[in-house]
Simulated assay, not measured.
Amino acid sequence: MKRFLLVALTLVLVCFSCRKDQPSHPELVLRYADNQSSGYPTVEAAKYLAELVKERTGGRIELRVYPDSVLGSETSVMQQMSYGGIDMSRFSLGTLYRFFPELWTLQLPYLYTDNEHMWRVLDGEIGDMYLRNMSGERIVGLAWYDAGARSFYTRNPIANISSLKGLTIRVQENDMMSRTIELLGAEAVQIPYQDIYSALQKLRIDGAENNLPSYVFMDHNQAAPYFYQDEHFRLPEVVMISVDAQEKVAAVDPLFVDVLIECAKESGLYERKLWQEEEKRAYEAAVESGVIFTIPSKEDLLELKKSMEPLYEELSPQQREIVKRIGDA
């Protein structure tokens, strides 16, 4: 009996100690939106971010992740964040450009030679500069997430650049993407992400462009089994927080603002690792499902890059200087 009472007392003390270190109810709950589903790298990285925030604020701040666009599309979420309706989210550069025109340069097609080149740029002075400048619309940039390279996929085979001419290709609501498609002789159609599969099935479009994990994750490989791996865009994504949410965090503890930034950056590194693993899985799944991959020849890549010259010629002197620095990285 004495032993039982001793064990019970020990458990009570342990529970009391836990409760003392970490409150049973958070002082602040933040809402984080994502348009992808659970299991997708960006969503899993957001959940990891939530764990870090809870741990490093001693449970005083909780981050709740809402995937599957349940809080709205990317554009809708951005608008809600600007007046504090949603606290945090992850955005594609394609969406952010509409609110931050200075991001035009980072969207240029064939800007980077490969993934390593892109991260040398974004982890350096240029990436930090862009994060600092993303502070309008009452939202603030915290960290970069990987979104791979975007390529074309179609219902019918693409042998080379000439095969793209005359095709109807879905793009995001983004001027740079539309211009890129048009310079290749195709027609750009802006339709919502969740409607692509239906548009392919109903023959409303000939194809689309996206990264490999998204292509497989949304079953687009079932409707468009030809993947032309030209990697025309490398568009990283940005974890952002509303100014209202940042002020609420500071009200709990001013030091937690920097804590949140560091947690976001750590989640970014974690997301990159998840992304690499997901790309490998997506490629294997695509091959197994019968997808035909075509890698452009060096001649085709040169022709593709040459067709983009009008976009580069329109750049301001300041933008050209950034492009030069990116090339030198």
Rank of each mutant, 00 (worst) to 15 (best):
K20R: 11
K20W: 15
K20H: 15
K20V: 13
K20T: 09
D21M: 12
D21K: 13
D21F: 05
D21T: 12
Q22H: 11
Q22D: 09
Q22A: 13
P23Y: 04
P23R: 03
S24W: 12
S24R: 07
S24K: 14
H25P: 06
P26T: 05
P26I: 04
P26K: 02
P26G: 10
P26C: 10
E27N: 14
L28G: 09
L28I: 14
V29K: 15
V29Y: 11
V29I: 13
L30H: 02
L30Y: 01
L30P: 06
R31W: 09
R31S: 10
R31M: 11
R31Y: 08
Y32L: 05
Y32M: 07
A33G: 07
D34Y: 00
D34S: 08
D34Q: 07
N35T: 14
Q36A: 09
Q36N: 15
Q36Y: 04
Q36E: 10
Q36R: 10
S37F: 11
S37I: 12
S37P: 14
S37Y: 11
S38H: 09
S38I: 13
S38D: 05
S38N: 07
G39L: 08
G39C: 06
G39K: 01
Y40V: 09
P41T: 08
P41A: 02
P41E: 02
P41Q: 06
P41V: 05
T42D: 04
T42R: 06
T42G: 03
V43N: 02
V43C: 00
V43H: 02
V43E: 01
V43P: 03
V43M: 00
E44H: 03
E44Y: 03
E44I: 06
E44G: 01
A45H: 07
A45Y: 04
A45C: 09
A45E: 05
A45W: 00
A46T: 07
A46P: 05
A46W: 00
K47W: 02
K47H: 14
Y48V: 02
Y48E: 10
L49W: 07
L49A: 04
L49E: 06
L49S: 02
L49T: 02
L49I: 04
L49P: 00
A50D: 11
A50I: 06
E51I: 04
E51Q: 14
E51V: 04
E51C: 01
E51D: 15
E51T: 14
